[in-house]
């Protein structure tokens, strides 16, 4: 554990709290992509089911259970409030996730991490590829609506920050732990890059106190 990884995990937890707080305070799931949340739930299932067979630390186990639990709790809350969106979600949450799923599965089968062809390792690699692109339905939804509530914006920012910190952690581990995972690094870079536009708009609008609207 190093400071970057800890900050990454805390950003991740913060993003989940912000999302749930947004839904609670507005009593609405407007502007939140159900598809992105469903993809995250699938990411956590395929990556963290090893919690039953492989023990790392109490911290590791607790966080895995937290991420699994909150992702399904979020889906449950969103499903319950599905009619509260100001615009029917099915008309704007239209990103075709099939391509993300098929692409991630293909990459995991062709290039499993460390070239280890086990079920758990292929699922782990699949989860990394899928996570790297899982935000796309949310970003497309944001682009279509053109504006977002501030809590939604903070949620996406914290989520983007999370993988950005992991990239710093991997650079740190490469030099100080003599540890490196190419799959983690490449997917982490892609994931962080997908947020880069968003980071820029966030900096321009939110940090300067303006309403969040895409140009």
């Amino acid at each position: 554990m190093n400071i970057f990884r800890f900050l990454a995990d805390m950003s991740h937890v913060l993003s989940i709290l912000l999302l749930l707080q947004k839904i609670r305070s507005s009593n609405s799931v407007a502007g939140i992509s159900f598809k992105t949340q469903a993809l995250y739930a699938l990411v956590f299932v395929t990556r963290y089911l090893d919690v039953f067979i492989y023990f790392v630390s109490i911290y590791n186990t607790a966080m895995k259970i937290l991420f699994l639990g909150t992702s399904f709790y979020t889906l449950h809350v969103m499903y319950k409030k599905r009619d509260s969106g100001t615009i029917a979600a099915n008309t704007i949450d239209t990103f075709r996730v099939e391509f993300l799923l098929i692409g991630s599965l293909a990459l995991a089968l062709i290039f499993p991490s460390e070239r280890i062809y086990s079920v758990t390792n292929i699922l782990w690699t699949f989860s990394l590829w899928l996570e790297s692109v899982a935000i796309l339905p949310q970003l497309f939804m944001l682009q279509r609506t053109g504006q977002a509530e501030s809590l939604t914006v903070h949620y996406i920012f914290a989520l983007g920050l999370y993988r950005g910190f992991y990239v710093l952690n991997w650079i740190y581990r490469y030099y100080f732990d003599n540890w490196f995972s190419l799959t983690s690094f490449v997917t982490g870079i892609i994931q962080t890059a997908l947020y880069s536009d968003f980071f820029w708009v966030y900096y321009q609008k939110v940090l300067k106190g303006k309403k969040f609207e895409l140009p």
Partner: peptide
């Protein structure tokens, strides 16, 4: 199944 490729990160 097991620790053939231990993933210690989240």
């Amino acid at each position: 199944l097991g620790d053939e490729n231990a993933h210690d990160e989240l």
